[in-house]
Structures are given as C-alpha cells and as structure tokens.
Design a protein around this nucleic acid. Sequence first.
DNA 1: GCGTTATGTCAATTACGCTTTACATCAGAT
DNA 2: ATCTGATGTAAAGCGTAATTGACATAACGC
Lengths: 63, 63
Amino acid sequence: MKNRLKVLRAERDWSQQALADLLEVSRQSVNAIETGKYDPSLPLAFRIADLFALPIEEIFIRN
Amino acid sequence: MKNRLKVLRAERDWSQQALADLLEVSRQSVNAIETGKYDPSLPLAFRIADLFALPIEEIFIRN
DNA sequence: GCGTTATGTCAATTACGCTTTACATCAGAT
DNA sequence: ATCTGATGTAAAGCGTAATTGACATAACGC
C-alpha cells in the first residue's frame, strides 16, 4: 500500500504535526504512514479521506 | 464502522468459508468482521473491495 | 437417527497500529 | 553561532487485527 499523504499535505502546506493534530493521532503515526512503515487502520484511513475530502481509493494505492 | 459484507455475501450465495478462501483469511476473521467484533485492516478492506468490485466507501460505513 | 454444512463463539497466540519519550539531523531565521 | 521548526527513527508498551484449534447449535439430505 502506497499513499499520497505527503503530497496532499504539501499541497496544503501542513506539517506532519499539523496533520497529526487534525487527525488526532501522534506525529510519529503520520510519519510512519508517510514513510511506509505501516498502513493506517481502516477507521483512520476514513478520517484521512474525510479530512482531504477524497475517496480512500484516491489516497491509498494497492500494492 | 458498519459493513455490508453479509449482504454482499448473501447476494452471491457464498459461505463465510468460501469468502474467507477468496480473501485468503480465516473463516473466523470473516465472521468477526461481519458480526462487528472488529474492523479489517486497510489492506484487507482493499482486497474485499476488489473482490466485490466496489469502492471501499460502498462496503464500509463510517460510524 | 446419522453425517454434513453453515454459523457463532471461545481461548491462546502472533503480528501490527498507535502511543509516549527521546534523540539526531537539517534548513532557515535572527 | 544559536535557536527553532520540521522530519526521521528507535525503544517500550498497550490495544486490537488476525491466526489456529476447538466446541456448540441449527438446518438439511439421506
């Protein structure tokens, strides 16, 4: 699973910490997801999709 | 997170075991997800969406 | 009755999502 | 040169996703 988090964040000029606050997770969680250390849980993926107003499929990519 | 797994499975007349085989998870996992014991991981949610050829948002519902 | 299939559930275990705390590096500003 | 913000990473711990194995029950055909 790859994801477009870093780009979406850059488009809005948000820091990892700012995004983490909006998502109510730790900065390390955002960092770990961006750097591909692990995938978010489904509920967190939904929160991310809601925040960016995009379908999950346009943020997270199979494979 | 609610989901429409049971209905989608019924529409295709698949047993929990048959679905588990297609998803390559245990029957207990399918059962646990259907009965709301827990949410699937994001990768598994994608596999489910792919299998039913539906967007994740049409299978899993917020709240 | 008996065997089979489907479903629900429990216990015990492994793997992973997410946390806090902490440390290191780099870029930019003063 | 120093301070600050941003990022990457690591360890330890907690909760949960997912596993296997097992047991119970209901529905069905034979």
